[in-house]
Amino acid sequence: MRSIVVEKLVLQRADGVFPAAIAIVKHTLSELKNIRYSFLHPNELNFFETLKFARVQHSYLLGRFAAKRALFAFLENFVMTEVEIAAGIFQQPIVYLPGTGNIQLSIGHREEMGIAIVYPESHPMGVDVELVEQEQSETIRDIVALGEQDKLQLIHSDPGKSLTLLWTMKEALSKVLKTGLMTPFELFEVDHVQRQDDIVICHFVNFPQYQSLSWLADGYAWSIVLPRKSELDLKMIRHLYL
């Protein structure tokens, strides 16, 4: 996979067209530390200096770098170091850039991978990424609802990959709703499952107004959650990893 992949998205609805931008980055901690002055706001730099553990530093830089690259594609004319991405009371990312309207952001990161999506407040979205690994898969089994047991095989024939994809769907939905892990994951139960080649499309029992688009790439599971009646050309998603 390339180290930075950015894609502008066009979301079609009966009542109009909505823009968005998504970025996926793959960088080591040392690479990100070397370039942090090129994309971090002064307040972000100050906060970064308070982080003591390498894993936390890496997650922070991955999320901020992916977010700034997605914002750059969405807005085009701005300086990355002038944008501050702070945390809300539920740790949701908040974009501070005067004069740009109500721009929203969702971030996901794991190991050396980061993903971010930028969208207008009027069209909520969320993203997540997880490493596919056996130990993590066994932990995820605890969040599988009874009604989802027969859908795991439809998501993917490999149990570990299926469980990890399921987790990213629920995590991305929780970011749309801005609840994070504070809400029982049973509420995010997956309903309908459909495959379009390498992309899995799912709906939700208790949130039928949303859908998830999920895929596997580079040993990771990825998901985007967006309004169910919004149409997104899947070729745009495949450009991210093919």
Rank of each mutant, 00 (worst) to 15 (best):
Y210K: 03
Y210A: 02
Y220N: 12
Y220L: 07
V205K: 11
F188S: 05
Q194D: 10
H203V: 10
H203G: 14
Y210T: 04
G219A: 06
G219P: 06
Q196S: 13
D198H: 13
D197H: 15
Y210H: 04
N206I: 13
L213A: 02
F188D: 04
Q194Y: 14
Y220A: 05
F188G: 01
I199Q: 14
I201R: 13
L187T: 05
R195H: 13
D197C: 10
H203P: 00
C202E: 09
W215D: 04
N206E: 11
V200S: 06
V205M: 09
Y210F: 15
Q211I: 05
V190N: 03
Q211K: 15
L187N: 11
D191V: 04
D191M: 03
H192M: 14
F207M: 10
N206Y: 08
Y220V: 11
V193Q: 03
A217V: 00
S212Y: 07
H192P: 03
Q194G: 04
P208E: 12
I201M: 12
V193K: 05
D198W: 13
D198E: 12
W215E: 02
D218P: 01
E189D: 11
Y220W: 09
S212G: 14
D218I: 01
W215H: 10
G219Y: 06
Q209T: 01
I201C: 14
W215P: 02
Q211M: 07
H192R: 14
Q211D: 02
L216G: 09
A221S: 02
Y210Q: 07
H192S: 14
H203C: 13
L216K: 06
V193N: 07
Q194A: 15
E189R: 08
S212V: 06
F204Y: 15
Y220H: 09
E186P: 00
W215N: 11
A221V: 04
P208S: 05
F188I: 05
E189P: 04
A217M: 02
E189N: 09
P208M: 10
L216Y: 05
I199D: 13
L187C: 03
C202G: 03
E186D: 11
N206H: 11
F204P: 07
I199H: 08
H203K: 14
F185Y: 07
V193C: 08
Q211N: 08
S214Q: 06
F188Q: 02
H192I: 10
Y220T: 10
Y210P: 06
L187R: 13
I201W: 00
D191H: 12
Q209L: 04
I201Y: 08
H203L: 11
L187V: 11
F204W: 09
R195M: 13
D218Y: 05
E186N: 09
Y220Q: 02
V200Q: 04
S214D: 06
V190G: 01
E186F: 01
W215T: 06
P208K: 10
S214M: 00
C202D: 12
Q194I: 11
V200A: 15
I201D: 08
V205Q: 09
F185C: 00
Q211G: 00
E189Y: 02
Q211H: 05
V205P: 01
R195L: 13
H192T: 12
S212I: 01
Q209H: 10
S212W: 06
F204N: 03
Y210G: 00
W215S: 03
F185P: 00
V205N: 07
Q194N: 13
D198A: 14
L216S: 02
C202K: 09
H192N: 14
D218N: 07
L216M: 14
I199S: 14
S212D: 09
I199M: 14
Q211C: 07
